[in-house]
Design a binder for these strands. Structure first.
Lengths: 146, 146
DNA sequence: GGGCTACCTAACAATCGTTGCAGATAAGCA
DNA sequence: TGCTTATCTGCAACGATTGTTAGGTAGCCC
């Protein structure tokens, strides 16, 4: 994720206005290491700007996504998540609590079979490991959730 | 996907009734090689049973999913898709038309780093190739969509 | 065949995430 | 400062899905 300052430059250079709302969203995203939903970003921003509307947050997140400064993905957890980490990487999805972790490992063997039998033009490859995160494993085997 | 006959057995053995509606849904799924939405299953079944309600289709699809006879997944195409192909496999997702194709290839190198640094317990691994399907590539490069 | 009970339909409301719209507001520039 | 135009906000609406209710139907077991 670029810094709020860089994003400000980018917005200006595209003729987009840099409003306090947008700056607040930039900061929220820059400080986030998770994969927030639009709702989560809205909550974070609301703390310093209580009058911001959810609509504006969606709008700005979509703008950033279209500009490639943010990735949007939907792993079946109910709502779209935004990822400030725009380089190709993979995900660990906990089926119990819905948490999503980044995985930066490289998987060199992952490519479509040679000859491209599907005629499919691959833009990005994502590996999703589903299962249970450390916390949920611990809660189940060790401390029985109490 | 098990055959309609097998599913009939399974339902019976669980004390669930095997109604014509359910049988029709079994058939629709068994004959499907795609990843239909609930709506698509509803349309297919409606052809041979026009009075069936969408509610019943949702109900039965959820039952099958809970029994593990069907996989439900959401790749960000707007609605949940059901996959009669319950063995581990992968997907090609067209970002243009939303189509989803199965990929049965095996990727032996895909596993979390040894030592399990994340404490993550993997249940299933899915690889999602995003890009453009044959049809959309063809429409863009060749016949300009006409 | 009869009875119990699950199941089905129909209709409607509600939920949730997300987006369209219209009018008010303010950023950026001269 | 003043203007132009992008942006913001609030609200309504949308699409997918589920809950509910009531009444009728029919599967399954004896």
């Amino acid at each position: 994720m670029k810094t709020p300052e860089e994003l400000t430059q980018i917005f200006r250079s595209r003729g987009l206005k840099v409003t306090p709302q947008r700056q607040s969203i930039f900061r929220a995203l820059h400080g986030s290491t998770t994969h927030p939903t639009a709702e989560a970003v809205y909550e974070a921003v609301s703390r310093e700007m209580p009058t911001i509307s959810l609509r504006t947050v969606y709008q700005t997140l979509n703008d950033l996504t279209q500009m490639g400064e943010l990735l949007a993905f939907d792993l079946g957890t109910g709502s779209v998540r935004f990822d400030p980490h725009t380089e190709e990487h993979h995900h660990l999805v906990c089926m119990e609590c819905g948490k999503v972790q980044d995985l930066d490992a490289d998987f060199p063997g992952v490519a479509l079979p040679p000859g491209n039998p599907f005629g499919f033009e691959v833009t990005s490859t994502e590996i999703v490991f589903r299962g249970r995160c450390r916390d949920c494993v611990g809660a189940a085997t060790g401390g029985d959730g109490a």
